[in-house]
Amino acid sequence: MNQRDLTYAKWIGLISGAILLFAAVTEYWPASGTSLNWLTLEEARLEAGRQEKPVFVDVYADWCGPCKQMERTVFPADSVRDLLSGRFVLAKINGDDPLTGDSLKKQFGIRAYPTYIVLSPTGKERKRRVGFINKTSLVSWLSDSAGVRILSWPELNNAAMTARTLHRRIMVLVLQSGEDLEHANTMFEGQKVAEAIGKFYVPTLLVRGNSGEESLLSQIAASPRTQMSEVIVLESNGKEVGRFFIDRQMQFRSFALENKLVELAKK
């Protein structure tokens, strides 16, 4: 009986070495298939309107490391490529482009690279992520259909009509960029805040950078761009009742936001 027999260890080690080599090779050489069809933003918007598909916008810079890593390791993966090419019209924006970069960066409020934005077929921002995303997170993020509830709020014109019918005031939530969507959704989904809105207001949402919404923002005299989201309360005829910025206290204590909304409802 050989107590020092290494046969098991050797064979298992050899087989594991072969599997490790296979793992490294498949990880190093991701799937090679057809490359993604990236368009300019304008082309993508036209195409999205025609196909009624959302637009996936990749805002990048030539010097940006994570952008290159996404390009090399994430976008070529089968699952990502299938999802992007099947469900979206794809657009790339070079943030450093001397002709269009600055205006597009300003329009979308880009603060870092890479930024990924999902626009509806009508050009309204739906989601945003900043920074490197691994393929699993990217697929989950893009496939997430649970949605952001505040996106289902009616548009300003419809909200005004509903407010007239229901004799309520209009609550306009102004976000500085789509990056604030998910956070704002969490705040406004809170039970007490949602109850206050349901009782007193017809809510609507405006996001800076969304096509067609800049004119609405100037129409309701939204404050100039800041870091904070703003709430403007209007009578159903459009006359302003009051406004406030959502400060840190309101972000972390929902009763502060609720109290302010109730106060403006009764003003």
């Binding site: 594991s16 599997i19 490790l20 296979f22 793992a23 699952s79 990502v80 989950s140």
Partner: peptide, 17 residues
């Protein structure tokens, strides 16, 4: 996460095992 077939991840898991 429905992020495709995890070939290299599974291979790495079995190799490590």
């Amino acid at each position: 996460g429905n992020a495709g077939t995890p070939t290299s991840e599974l291979a790495w898991g079995f190799a490590a095992l």
